[in-house]
Amino acid sequence: MAQENGAHDSQLLKGVLSLALLRLLAERESYGYELVTRLHELGLTEVQDGSVYPALGRLERDAHVTSRLVASSSGAARKYYRLSAAGYAALEHIELAWQSLVRALAPILSTPVPAKPKEALP
């Protein structure tokens, strides 16, 4: 949900980071920093590298992704992640949950906000 200045709520982002990572990995196998740049290219520039790498570890621990090391020109081997069968199932489940949440919120968000009372609480 973009705010007026284009920034995103960090708590919201944290909640949907797994979904975003699973979705990106469903498109193609990828490594940590590449996933960060892909998220940034999609406009999620507030996502920090430091939140993506542990999130990948969590997905791997939950067996939603598998990983392999690939030698790179920079010296250190890259760790590529790809979705597992459980990962595809999890992606489908989370996507459905997300769509259900959006549908549930839509009527609330589509109604105009009532005029603010004069003596509104701060």
């Binding site: 960060v36 790179s72 250190a76």
Partner: peptide, 10 residues
């Protein structure tokens, strides 16, 4: 190792 690799890449 993964952190170092990603940092070098970045």
């Amino acid at each position: 190792n993964e952190l170092r690799s990603n940092l070098i890449e970045a």
